[in-house]
Design a protein around this nucleic acid. Structure first.
Lengths: 173, 173
DNA sequence: CGACTATACTTGAAGATTAAAGTAATTGTT
DNA sequence: AACAATTACTTTAATCTTCAAGTATAGTCG
């Protein structure tokens, strides 16, 4: 009975008795995934910084605004599309406002809310730098994929993303 | 002849005349990849911060040290394995040193170089928190993959990584 | 209607990262 | 051997992000 208790101890509490260590193939994949999460943004950022004087995150914020109708989004919506906390976004929008690329407007229907609006200057800056950016993304990513990889990768990434943020809404910060 | 010149203008300079915009499938995949590079590290970090009081990057540095022979690596080697600039690593090692998890040693064969060494306390801390970390990685990533996904993903990630840092050595910072 | 809680941000300070210089040792050059 | 260039970091300062509060408006419930 004593042995049984030992064996069941963790199972009953919901914890695995023995860690489910990664196999060497899994470990290899994980190392690559970790490397990618650091190196890919860094590489994309280098091009944008050099050619557009802007960070990847700032570019992405402008891009998400440019696609919204009226080039306008609520801060909280924009934060979601930019994978950002509200706090981070607020600081960045302040900077973008100073550059004249974004403007804040009070939301007419909700007194608490703020709309971020892409200005014409902001749109022009985005438009001017989009070709260089997509070319970089192509060279770094898509030119290295084979037919079928896009669909396969997209599906796998989608499944991982679901778990990373189940309710699809990032917490406040 | 005038038209011909126009057509060749950019081709000759090596620039694409018309940007190679992403298709909607490619765009979808890119958005997911961008989301992953932000959300996955954030999620992993949350577990480590909560349970180990350590950042993902710090954990990774300790892990890369633990696998080296003598639990020792040159700063520049460690920076490579941690996907880090030397500057960033230097700051982090200073912090880890203050916590007693890492120690610096002069390299005996090269007066310019510094070895980072994982202390027993550092190893113990890593050992204590590794199970929780791998369990989180399993839940976030591997439990969501189907058979064959590991090999396929690993291959694709490997190809992208080659382009992101062709010489496999990150520049100094 | 009035308190109470929740939502939607904004702000200020603390902590981390990046960028630019600075230091020191080593290697290559003549 | 002397000098320049390179390598391997470290350090300082500027920038950015996160964290913890703070503010104001909007719903909710008695």
């Amino acid at each position: 009975m004593a042995a049984e208790v030992t064996e069941l101890r963790n199972a009953a509490s919901g914890e695995a008795a023995e860690p489910r260590w990664l196999s060497s193939d899994e470990r290899e994949m994980w190392m690559r995934l970790v490397g990618l999460t650091i190196l890919l943004p860094t590489a994309v950022e280098a091009q944008l910084k050099r050619d557009a004087g802007i960070s990847f995150f700032e570019y992405h914020v402008l891009a998400m605004l440019s696609e919204a109708k009226g080039r306008t989004r609520l801060m909280s919506e924009l934060a979601f599309w930019a994978n950002s906390s509200l706090s981070r976004l607020s600081h960045v929008v302040t900077r973008l406002e100073k550059q004249g690329w974004v403007r804040r407007e009070a939301c007419p229907t909700d007194g608490r809310a703020t709309n971020a609006v892409l200005t014409d200057e902001g749109f022009a800056h985005l438009e001017a730098n989009a070709p260089g950016h997509v070319e970089e993304v192509r060279q770094l990513v898509f030119d290295r994929l084979e037919p079928g990889d896009v669909a396969a990768l997209s599906a796998v990434l989608g499944r991982i993303l679901e778990g990373v943020d189940p309710d699809q809404r990032r917490a406040a910060g």
